[in-house]
Nucleic acid binder design. Structure first.
Lengths: 192, 192, 192, 192
DNA sequence: CATGAATGAGTTTTCATTCAT
DNA sequence: TATGAATGAAAACTCATTCAT
């Protein structure tokens, strides 16, 4: 059990440092120190810094998608499904502020652009499928505005990420009511 | 006239390099080269790299605010004023992709957080006043949803920045119609 | 029989990697991998990398000397004995290019100097004795030029190693005729 | 005059350290220290370590060729020209032991092989032309043995480099007489 | 005996900043 | 004022060797 232990410690330390100080604020030596391992040890688990960063991203993404699946049912009406995804996403970010800030660092970086492209164009089999499927359905069924998927995504993710950031930075204190109102407002933005 | 000339060249070179390659991809020596000045010269105009970055940010912000003022009139009805600001902001980003990408780099960095705080809390006499005033008025007059300013901001800036990014990265081709529809959708999101 | 088995595998792997990539291109972990043993195992057979390198050298030298002995007879005339040693040495290098390249790596390194000293000064009981004895005899019997042993060695080994290298690197294709002519030319150089 | 000063110091330090300790025994930090400059300074003059190593090699080669040209005349008989080149080359190595040892390090390395190929195949316009021209002439005029150029080179350079090495390592003390005898012996080896 | 994860000193290279000219 | 050579701290990564299992 000591092997996954170290890998986990490294990942945790990397998440913490990168989330708080950005990629350049997280030198490998510091990550190692925070993980209580030697600098060289990191390279037993990750080929290089890029790989560490990318694998950490995938871990995070997987966790988010799992969180969103919970309680999500294709049986429920469209609007309810949308509200579920929105509130759960926001909840997840609020409960995991380090994860949120890590994602921001990641998306605003060379790594991020490629991933973003995949997600939007749907070329990857990646996670974002839940959203793409739902939004696509909404367009087809004329529940949502007849706009390019990218723009509907912007109208949803834009505000959600923005309020999450504001909450985490302490500019607003999101409670259940506010979360609900925010997601409802997003709904107003995208619904036909 | 040779002094401001150099300053301008430095700022221009910094904008270009930082927008395209991020802060890392813009070492002072390279900025100097692109500005056709010596490395040491930059330090006659800017105390250090941080100051250069911050001043460049202020320049950009000032330009944006000036662009928004044009054609903006307190006489026009509320909704029209909102649509004007939204479309003009989007236009500005589309016409100045380097500026937009610079802002993204800037906001996603230690510098960015402080500035954001000022803007949202309104502690600075900074630019965002046009928006704050308008949104505040909208709340008071019960035109906009009764939500914290921060959240209304998120519902507006979130989508606008998001579609601007997507356009600049080539994920969508924004024409006048799409721009209009996007801002209208934002309106749907914030209006009561 | 499993102990010597492993030792052999390690030595073989080291020969291969060092011959092809030099000492730098042969980290202990890689040698271990190629030998199908664990990294730590190497240290059961060799105190450290230097010892491994030196012992491998001795193995090689012993093999060469054995190859030279074959068909070598003190009965034969001097010139014939010389030609035999020369052609056999060249044959051996051509048939064992890895061995040759290893020797080159070895001689051009701190290890090499000490060994060379031993060989030339004859302080070690080492291999080169066949050559030293033969050449010494040639001087005494006034068959060879009256030059220091070192210089006669240079006139023989210099060309032989040089053509071997050129053949192995593909700069010339040595056939039996060329090999013979080369050794004859060496003979012309040293004979009185 | 301070610019070439530093470059020269760096080159001198590199020559010294590499000649004495090999490429890995000469870390950039140590070269910098021996040159009395900061580590970063080296990179103002040489893009990276490889470039430093290669440029140093070219400097050395140029010097050698200049030394060989001195007193060399196409008017003199073939044999005399050969003896001139041989003795001068040996003299040069004896007078510049660091240069000799540097060349040995260089030739026995990835860099070296490429250079060697050029020299032998004569694809480069490089220096070795004096030798190639002379030897080629000797073959044509039936003064030298009818052997591939590569092999004649081996019969000449092999012994010369070998005795130079032995002298520098202290295994033999070359005086004028010995130098002469050695080169004469080489002549015996290559002449028809 | 064998393993292979862990170590950490050591390597090359970058870059913001200074200062003599 | 302007220059740009020089600085040196800091970063990512490698690898011989050890030692608990």
């Amino acid at each position: 059990m000591s092997k996954p232990d170290k890998r986990d410690e490294i990942v945790r330390a990397a998440l913490e440092l990168i989330a708080e100080n950005g990629f350049h604020g997280a030198p490998m030596a510091l990550i190692a120190e925070h993980a209580n391992v030697a600098a060289g040890t990191i390279y037993r688990y990750f080929e290089n810094k890029d790989v560490l960063i990318t694998e950490l991203y995938r871990d995070i993404e997987k966790n988010i998608m799992e969180a969103l699946q919970e309680g999500y049912s294709l049986e429920k009406p469209f609007r309810e499904r949308f509200l579920h995804l929105g509130t759960e996403l926001l909840h997840h970010f609020i409960r995991n502020p380090l994860v949120f800030r890590y994602l921001e660092q990641f998306h605003n970086s060379p790594y991020g652009v490629a991933v973003r492209r995949d997600k939007i164009l749907g070329t990857s089999t990646s996670d974002c499928n839940v959203f793409r499927e739902l939004f696509q359905l909404g367009i087809t069924q004329q529940i949502l505005k007849d706009l390019p998927l990218v723009i509907l995504f912007a109208l949803f993710f834009g505000p959600v990420l923005s309020v999450a950031r504001d909450h985490i930075l302490g500019f607003v204190e999101l409670d259940e009511a506010l979360i609900h109102q925010t997601i409802e407002a997003c709904w107003d933005g995208i619904k036909r």
